[in-house]
């Protein structure tokens, strides 16, 4: 880490500490009701004493499992459909309008139909998360496939590469940066819809944890839950970004 980076990190730490300290100070000043606006320390300590650690870990695990399931489905289907509709002109002509009709419908608007189709169990939650991941992956991958520099395809064609091999060896690698972007956006949206998905008659998960806490007016647990979901999102997104950099960073800048 060079000096400039170290400087930046130090400034960032100062900024973060300042904001947390200000929040703590306001909460403890007596100007606001700590039951409604708890200090961060109070919220975290309170939540950790009221909720057994096993329960918290369980909530995190079940939420992450739902996200991974929905995301994996959405990413796989999104990439496959993007490749097919981006590369095969006729297929693309047929499918594109259908996608254009469905894509603007927000994932959460599917919740009622998800309940009708899949009931109140796990599948409907996974379905909503799936929708969150599917469309961003699809649109980004589609852009990647159709945006491949034509000269690269021509170069491959002069080397007798055509058909499926052209798709696998040139188009997909060239579209990878866009696919990676889609995966990150899709992952973020999976987290974004998590809470709503867990509103569907859930008895577990981080979304349930905070909605449940509201019933008891336990703002400390709500704040803790918000921070916990944010931290999980941040950490996993960071991991995903690292993977992508490992995977594409050698030839693709940023």
């Amino acid at each position: 880490m060079n000096a400039a980076r170290r400087n930046e990190a130090a400034l960032g730490a100062v900024g973060a500490v300042a904001v947390v300290a200000a929040w703590e100070a306001v909460a403890r000043s007596g100007l606001v009701d700590p039951a409604i606006f708890p200090a961060p320390s109070a919220a975290i300590v309170g939540a950790l004493t009221r909720l057994p650690p096993g329960e918290i870990a369980g909530s995190v695990a079940i939420s992450l499992l739902r996200i991974v399931e929905g995301f994996a489905l959405g990413a796989a289907l999104g990439i496959a459909l993007a490749l097919a509709s981006g590369w095969y002109r006729i297929f693309g002509n047929l499918v594109r309008p259908l996608v254009e009709v469905l894509r603007p419908i927000p994932p959460l608007a599917w919740i009622p139909m998800a309940i009708v189709w899949f009931g109140l169990g796990e599948p409907s939650k996974v379905f909503v998360i799936f929708l969150g991941a599917f469309f961003p992956v699809l649109t980004n991958a589609y852009r990647g496939v159709t945006g491949v520099d034509p000269v690269l395809i021509r170069a491959a064609q002069t080397m007798d590469i055509g058909g499926l091999r052209l798709l696998v060896r040139v188009v997909i690698p060239a579209a990878m940066p866009d696919i990676a972007t889609g995966l990150r956006v899709g992952w973020g949206l999976s987290f974004g819809v998590l809470v709503a998905a867990e509103l569907i008659a859930a008895e577990s998960g981080m979304g349930f944890m905070i909605m449940n806490a509201r019933q008891f007016g336990d703002v400390g647990v709500i704040v803790f839950g918000i921070l916990l979901i944010g931290a999980c999102n941040l950490a996993t997104d960071w991991g995903l970004a690292l993977l992508i950099r490992r995977w594409l960073g050698r030839w693709h800048s940023v």
């Binding site: 520099d149 000269v151 690269l152 021509r154 170069a155 491959a156 002069t158 080397m159 040139v170 690698p173 060239a174 990878m176 594409l248 030839w251 693709h252």
Partner: peptide, 13 residues
Amino acid sequence: KGMVFQQHALFPW
């Protein structure tokens, strides 16, 4: 028929 392109057209990956 081999071709060398005006823009090098190397595969960046």
